[in-house]
Amino acid sequence: MGYTIKDFIDSHKFPGMKLISDNSEINREIKGTWIIAVPDMEKFLGGGELLLTSLMVYKKLDERMMLSHLEELNKKQVSGFVVKRIQNTAQQNKLFETLLRFCNEHSIPVLEIPQDLSYWQIIKYLLLQVFNIEIAKAVYSKMTRDEFNRLFLEETSESRSLENLLDKAGRIFENPIALYNEDLHYIYSSTSDKSDLIIIDDNEKYVPNIISRYEYMRQKRKNVEYIRKINILNQCTYYLVVSEVNESLRELDFITLDSLMPLLLYVLTQIVTDRNIEKNIIEIWNTEC
């Protein structure tokens, strides 16, 4: 038997997590973990996964349709659910009641976590319990790429995409992330800190222990910082910085950076290109006038 729901509960890794269903099937093996991102999540599962959800993905469905999807998940022999109440509304309470009733009828364990506990903290922990490190890195790479791509496809404004991409990355890291321009001035931070970046002289090159095209500068000020210098069209330079404020960065965190980087490069390129077009239009206008 591999890593089970009972093992997860007994780890006491996440204070505030509690079993809210009956405990008849807590020896179910966890064979993976995913966030329920779409109502028909069953189409993307291999079987035996522990699913994380606020249930809001089902908010536009009636009870019959929700139960239909839960039936399909049960056919996949999911190991259980980890749920989070992000709203205290009649609608979400009804969704929780439907899920809990279904899971008790089918002896599927349901764990509840506090609002401030990140799904990604649980994902990073569980993948390393369920898989060896190489498989965990491959699965996590797909999960983070999918997460950023899904967020990006929902956006229409480059500036808003930039903010949301970095905000999402900060929540996955559970550490501050910030972006600075070539003069080291603040552009974005996931915290309230808007101070300029300082790059110290004795920073060192850092190459993470993953298959990656990227390397970083590593420096220690108040906290350890990892800095990625980004050149856009040989015209603009940006600095992306992740700081080890809450916990040390590990291999899976650098995979998150690898997943983020292509979309970040695309958005920054769009911003620089739009700026050049605007500049050229102004120059043409001034010349003609």
Rank of each mutant, 00 (worst) to 15 (best):
N231G: 07
E105V: 06
I187P: 07
I20G: 09
D196A: 14
I281L: 14
W285Q: 13
E215M: 05
S190V: 05
E251Y: 03
Y3I: 02
L165R: 11
L257F: 12
T89L: 01
A169R: 11
R28G: 03
N209Y: 07
F96G: 00
L184P: 00
N149Q: 07
E97P: 00
I255S: 04
L252A: 06
F14D: 07
I86Q: 05
T237W: 00
E71W: 14
L117N: 05
Q219T: 02
K194C: 04
G16S: 07
L111Q: 08
Y239Q: 06
S118V: 04
R250G: 09
R228I: 04
I35L: 13
H69V: 01
E29V: 15
Q129G: 00
G16P: 08
N23C: 02
S190Y: 11
D10K: 14
L52V: 04
K205F: 02
L162P: 13
N149C: 00
E29A: 08
R28I: 01
T98D: 14
I200H: 12
E251P: 03
L73M: 12
Q121V: 01
D183M: 12
Y3A: 02
L19E: 11
D116V: 05
E155A: 02
V241K: 08
Y238K: 10
S11L: 09
W34P: 00
Y125R: 05
Q235P: 00
I35H: 09
R228V: 05
I123L: 06
G47H: 10
S11Q: 04
N27A: 03
E288P: 00
N209K: 15
I133S: 13
F44V: 05
I9W: 02
F152P: 03
A178L: 12
L126W: 08
I282L: 12
S159R: 13
K205D: 11
K142F: 11
V245D: 01
L197I: 09
L265R: 09
P208V: 02
S192V: 08
L166Y: 11
L50V: 10
L257S: 11
V242E: 04
G48A: 06
K124Y: 08
K124I: 03
D258K: 14
N175T: 01
Q129N: 08
Y239E: 01
K142T: 11
K13G: 00
V207D: 12
Y125K: 06
A90P: 01
L51F: 14
M17R: 04
Y216P: 13
D196S: 15
K75D: 14
N223R: 12
N164G: 00
M217T: 06
E283M: 05
L70V: 02
I26S: 08
Q77C: 04
F152D: 03
Q115C: 00
M66V: 07
